[in-house]
Design a protein around this nucleic acid. Structure first.
Lengths: 233, 233
DNA sequence: CGACTTATTGAAGGAAGTCAACACTAGTGG
DNA sequence: CCACTAGTGTTGACTTCCTTCAATAAGTCG
């Protein structure tokens, strides 16, 4: 038997009856599939008829440009929805697995049907979508108004926070399983310059680098570095 | 008596009965207010209970940063919704009038009520929201992966297209009533560098500058310049 | 008119990109 | 099992795009 999808767990928390999981929601059928690092989850131009959500692992929204470069629009973690919304659409960007990923797929129709019967579900879905929009607004602000160092700090802080949101309180360390090249592609830097910046941060002990990822020693240390930046300016 | 709000006109076009305007939608009550250039439409932290839409003119979503600088997240034109969605929320960014603006305000409750009675309305609202999201994704891609010249071209093209979407076919000229400083704030440039770039574009005859705005001589000319950029690279 | 905003131009400095080289790991296939 | 390849991380030197600082015009508004 299936366990509950992280997506549904998050939806349930946003319902007015925010207490425990709704039996109606839990009973919805979904299909889980496991994908390898680098696999495509939804390609650009795909006509989606299913709502794809991240069950486990890390994925990314991205665009490929004519010159061959890539822009990571945002990272997606467990419980995030990949589609723009629950209705069938055509994707104007791609989604790929950053780590090994389990995706949970729901039929559009069944979710749409539920919005008519489950009170507050539609609002919950809007709220969930709005969380992603807020991340995009942050991203735009970061790209537009911050220098490289500040962008790196913000990105690492955002990812560390989202990846550790399972555990109740702040964990001592968070491992971000993303290559430097990919992280650099998210904040509009070359992987070379990105590397120089985190090299500096590593020397100061805020983070540790290793092949295939970065370990954040403590999120509050990151914030301290961010504060220093503002003072320096 | 009120005329139809551009917002409702756009919603109606997205309904399955996409033919003419729905009498139900047209009959919804809304309040129009006129604001001056620079006025605040929705401030950061505002708890919105009404759905605010642009009736006429140009507005912007923006954030103010601790260092006093400003990031324009996106521009909003007639028919665009200012809220993140139709449910009450707290704004994490501000919205201000770029030109004189007429805003049309609906009660959240009445729109929410309609989603239960008008078939396809909810989907139409999602689609509308998704249009804005697509613009944000474009914006992120532009900020992250393009140099200043390309960003300016994309921004001007986007604005010219959106501002001229009333008229059926491509108009010969489009006037963008936004100061250079504001346009620069949208794409993460200093107004000085922005000015140098459009100065160059003006010399080539693609645009004309004037106090308070920029005139695009023809959108296809912009695209031609963009193509040159790619060749040059 | 005087104050303010917007636009424009020049010169100099700095942040980040480009080019190039090398080390290390992991995976592949002979 | 090991050589080969490809992806990743790291460092140095040079270049360039963009910012910063500064100054001047030119509209606009009270």
């Amino acid at each position: 038997m299936h366990h509950v999808s992280p997506f549904m767990r998050r939806v349930a928390q946003l319902l007015p009856s925010s207490g425990r999981s709704s039996p109606v929601l839990d009973s919805i059928h979904f299909r889980s599939t496991c994908l390898d690092k680098g696999d495509e989850i939804l390609g650009t131009g795909t006509r989606v008829k299913q709502v794809v959500t991240i069950g486990h692992g890390l994925a990314m929204r991205y665009r490929l440009l004519p010159d061959g470069s890539r822009q990571v629009i945002m990272f997606l973690t467990a419980g995030d929805i990949c589609n723009p919304h629950i209705y069938p659409t055509v994707m104007d960007h791609g989604i790929a697995a950053v780590t090994q990923v389990r995706i949970d797929r729901f039929e559009c129709e069944s979710l749409i049907g539920l919005t008519n019967t489950v009170v507050g579900l539609n609002q919950a879905l809007w709220t969930l979508a709005e969380e992603q929009n807020a991340i995009m607004r942050d991203h735009i602000t970061s790209l537009g108004r911050s220098d490289a160092k500040a962008r790196v700090l913000m990105l690492l802080k955002e990812l560390a926070t989202r990846l550790s949101s399972y555990e109740g309180r702040e964990p001592s360390q968070v491992f971000i399983p993303v290559t430097q090249t990919l992280l650099a592609d998210a904040i509009g830097l070359t992987h070379i310059h990105f590397n120089r910046i985190i090299g500096d941060m590593a020397k100061r002990g805020a983070i540790a680098t290793s092949r295939g990822g970065i370990t954040i020693n403590s999120i509050s240390t990151l914030e301290k570095l961010g504060a220093e930046l503002i003072v320096a300016a």
